[in-house]
Amino acid sequence: MTAPPRPTIALAALALTGLAACAPTIHVKVDPITIYAKLDANVRLSLDADVKALIQKNPNLF
């Protein structure tokens, strides 16, 4: 059995390289998300009261 001629090997290598270059590519586009948050004084006062109560119940927390 004889080895295939060199042009055949080069052509096969070129064909395989071309197939590898055609691999599918997936692009995902994600739009930015805008979040609006509004805190008013009532929420902060409620949290302050909750924290004060927690500290009174557990004075060794901090």
Rank of each mutant, 00 (worst) to 15 (best):
G18E: 05
P7H: 03
I26F: 09
I9A: 12
H27C: 08
K29T: 14
L61H: 06
P4L: 01
A41D: 15
K52Y: 05
D40N: 13
A3K: 10
L54I: 03
L61A: 14
T8P: 03
A41W: 05
A41P: 05
A3Q: 14
L47C: 05
P32I: 05
T17K: 07
K29Y: 09
I26N: 04
P32T: 11
P5I: 09
Y36C: 08
T8A: 11
T25N: 06
A41G: 12
M1N: 06
L14K: 10
K52Q: 10
L11R: 15
P7F: 06
T34R: 14
T17C: 11
V28S: 04
V28N: 03
L39N: 11
I35F: 12
A13F: 02
I55F: 00
P32R: 05
A37Q: 14
T2S: 12
R6I: 13
A13H: 02
Y36V: 14
N60S: 13
M1G: 14
A20G: 01
D31V: 07
C22N: 12
R44V: 09
D40E: 15
I33R: 07
K57V: 02
N58L: 04
P4Y: 02
N58T: 04
A10S: 13
T17W: 10
T17N: 09
A3G: 09
K38S: 15
G18P: 02
V28C: 04
H27N: 13
I55Y: 04
K57C: 04
A10R: 11
D48S: 11
C22L: 14
N60C: 07
K29D: 12
I33C: 06
H27Y: 13
K57T: 03
H27I: 08
P24L: 07
T8F: 05
K38C: 11
A10E: 15
I33E: 00
V51M: 07
A13G: 01
D50F: 00
T34K: 12
L39S: 12
D40S: 08
F62M: 12
L19G: 07
N42S: 15
P4R: 04
K57D: 00
V30S: 08
T34N: 10
A41C: 08
R44G: 02
V28E: 03
I33V: 15
L39W: 08
K52M: 08
D40T: 05
L45G: 06
P24M: 00
K29M: 03
I9Y: 03
T17R: 09
M1Q: 09
K29A: 13
L47E: 00
K57G: 03
P32C: 03
P4M: 05
N58F: 05
L61K: 02
A37K: 12
A12P: 01
L61T: 08
G18A: 14
T2D: 11
A10F: 10
Q56Y: 04
I55G: 04
S46P: 00
Y36F: 10
A12N: 00
M1A: 15
A20P: 06
G18F: 09
V51F: 01
P7S: 06
L11E: 09
T8D: 12
T17D: 10
Q56S: 02
P24H: 04
L45H: 00
I55D: 02
K52I: 10
I9C: 06
P32Q: 08
F62D: 04
D31Y: 10
M1S: 13
L45F: 01
N42Q: 14
